[in-house]
Design a protein around this nucleic acid. Sequence first.
DNA 1: GTCTATAATTCGATAGAC
DNA 2: GTCTATCGAATTATAGAC
Lengths: 210, 210
Amino acid sequence: MQEIVSTTTTDTKEQIISVAERLFAERGFAGTTLRTVIGEADVNLAAVHYHFGSKEELFRAAVKRFARPIVEQELALLAQLQEGGRVPTVEAILTALLTPSLEFLAQDKELLLVHTQFMGRCWAEPEPLKSIVRDEFAASMEAFLDVLQRALPDRSRSQLAWKFNLVIAALIRVQSEAGQPLALIQCTEPEAIRSAIEQLVKFLSPGMRS
Amino acid sequence: MQEIVSTTTTDTKEQIISVAERLFAERGFAGTTLRTVIGEADVNLAAVHYHFGSKEELFRAAVKRFARPIVEQELALLAQLQEGGRVPTVEAILTALLTPSLEFLAQDKELLLVHTQFMGRCWAEPEPLKSIVRDEFAASMEAFLDVLQRALPDRSRSQLAWKFNLVIAALIRVQSEAGQPLALIQCTEPEAIRSAIEQLVKFLSPGMRS
DNA sequence: GTCTATAATTCGATAGAC
DNA sequence: GTCTATCGAATTATAGAC
């Protein structure tokens, strides 16, 4: 549908989202002012309202832009695991869940840290912002929970739900702390990311079965 | 040192902290205005600045008031585990870490949910607020990491550190989600809290050893 | 210690020219 | 689509009477 007309996306709208994403990640929604956004994005204040309508809609646009490719890849990996009606292992399911968030955007090292921190902080936002994030990932979350239920049929749905919740918590924590002194993810080299995913899966899998 | 002179603490300073704590928990620091605080606390705006000096100092006061008894009990439980030079099990260490945060304030059901959500959101606050929280728990965190190192002497310090980080993440998540539909903690009955701690320890312990 | 009143600033949003 | 200019409201913080 879209043609590649330039190597770098310097469109005003995308530029605003990129800066807002980073500031939301660092300071949260309420702690970020539109004036800071336009200052760093080098655009006019009125442009924000022209393109997005409001600060909250800008937040929604930022969430959608970074969430969609991740959810897409999560569901693709999950479908791949279930080809031919197979029931995947817990390890395979968790790997499919964690990989897109941590690896997908690793092409750009700076971007990965921004995105991971943005996602980490998104889950801590108060309503109605949290719902924006939750809704965007809802389809993927339900699909993973369904597959987990089939991999562990003798566990109750409610038990699987809160354990799954802790997996998400671990993912968010790893993302939030990325780059800090004693964090699991120290650098964004593809090899280091894959190693981190592997260690995370080893940490979490036994608990899912306990 | 202190005498019990009244059944309820209606002191202005304590009243302000109590309301601020709840609002910080629900909306975060930047999302909470002093005017909302004084409105619900039914005190004057100037009283906040008289007692605390600034909004940030009010936050610091709130963090200290709820963190100190928790840290105190954490360290007491840890010392108790090590009596006679024993090396505790991983399960015992994790139980000592999780219990005070989840159980200590369970005498007052409403207060427990406020405190757990406050602590959960504190860790998502941007600097310099996050450092206030981290500093308050630093002594306890280091002590637990030291004991874990003795319980698992063949693990590297850095590996223990990020795994310990995930334990904290699980605790924070359980606290943040407390009371919500599919959360581990649905009610604040002492029995339910203890059961939740037990399940959490079972979930996390195998991962610590993996 | 508590209050009223207000300073000084900053916020999100909008109007209207180009 | 982008800009300047500004509105109206909300913010933290302070001054000064009681």
